[in-house]
Nucleic acid binder design. Structure first.
Lengths: 203, 203
DNA sequence: AGTTTCCTTGACCCCGAGGTCAAAATTCAA
DNA sequence: TTGAATTTTGACCTCGGGGTCAAGGAAACT
């Protein structure tokens, strides 16, 4: 787990290039579908050179996943029990949608992983994700109990936020195929989702 | 496109076994991740025998995708311009959720495909899906114009229905990891989504 | 029963992909 | 500037996986 951080400038630069290239390729092709040659190509390195920096394909993937989880859960962590309930939840929706817009490859990497049964992140789901969701679900449930939110199942509320926001990253090609040209899916989604959750949650 | 349908009883039986096995494997591993050996194994056939029935891995996948699209779009087709707006949309949500519950492998097969950029179904998205959605979006827009639904972007409404219902099939492992044991995700989702869309759409 | 058609299989081919290695090229330190 | 450490690469190994083929077994028709 504890990796010796790269020390030289070259190591720094090439490790970054590899991870960036790998994110591109893994997120588009899945783990099995990605090849080291593709990643090496995109990173501007030869395959053996790539394997000088990472011991295996698995290791590259693992490093990406590890880095992903933090970023992925931060917006939920930021949901503040002391804030205004509707504003807090709408803020979470907005942050999550921004994540989909700005980091679609990360979203697809995650989706690929979960779709295939989460073989490499099952532990993290149980160990990191669940406690966090339990915590925030309790906050939402308390808001409902205080009458500051319309009655709602907090877990499924959170699921629906994940689903609707990540949809625009994961199913981007379908969204654009249906909308046709001349649309800004994320801007429209922002407006739609704000309406959706405002109506849903108004006490 | 026009395939000579299997004629003998043996062909019937083995083709079905292959498609069923392939659905299982493709939906869980993706196209590149699936192997003919896995499919043959699961179908109870040898690999060459499998290739006696289908000319290639691609062909099996194509047949699955083709069969999928009809089933996948039928619930939307059933949305009736003559019915009660809220009831029609809630009915659509319910049918789509049932599809996720009863055909999760089909849902994941589709998700895998779209995630990877829909290389094999791009044409179908443009040619079949878009016109259908345009049609139904117009119906919903008309309902809104008549004041029978609260104002809503019909396209993003449909996206949100796809996202929230398919989530329970595609991210099943995550949903169960978060909920823990002793839950029926689909039953709970049914209740939650009915509330969500009822509040969203009430005129 | 005999023959034709259909079904099944073991052995094989080839390529792509993950990974190794020793040696060459480059960078760095003194 | 020279020697040590680091980085890069071409050649190579192995194996899994898609696909072929020729020949053996079963059905099916007459």
């Amino acid at each position: 787990m504890t990796r010796a951080k790269p020390k030289t400038r070259i190591q720094q630069k090439n490790s970054e290039a590899i991870l960036k290239a790998a994110l591109e390729v893994f997120s588009q092709a899945g783990f099995r579908g990605a090849t080291l040659d593709q990643i090496a190509d995109r990173a501007g390195l030869s395959k053996p050179n790539l394997l000088y920096y990472f011991p295996s394909k698995e290791a590259i993937h693992a490093e990406l996943i590890a880095g992903l989880l933090k970023v992925w859960l931060d917006p939920l962590r930021a949901l503040d029990a002391g804030g205004d309930p509707v504003a807090e939840i709408l803020g979470y929706v907005r942050r999550k949608l921004e994540l989909s817009r700005d980091f679609p490859r990360e979203s697809r990497l995650f989706a690929n992983e979960v779709l295939q049964g989460a073989p490499r992140i099952d532990a993290a789901l149980q160990g990191e994700l669940k406690p966090l969701v339990d915590d925030k679900a309790a906050v939402i449930a308390a808001w409902v109990a205080e009458g500051r939110l319309a009655p709602v199942d907090p877990y499924h509320l959170i699921f629906s936020i994940w689903a609707t926001t990540q949809h625009y990253a994961d199913f981007d090609v379908q969204v654009r195929a249906v909308l046709g040209p001349g649309h800004d899916p994320f801007a429209e989604a922002g407006a739609f989702l704000e309406t959706l959750y405002r109506r849903m949650l108004a006490a």
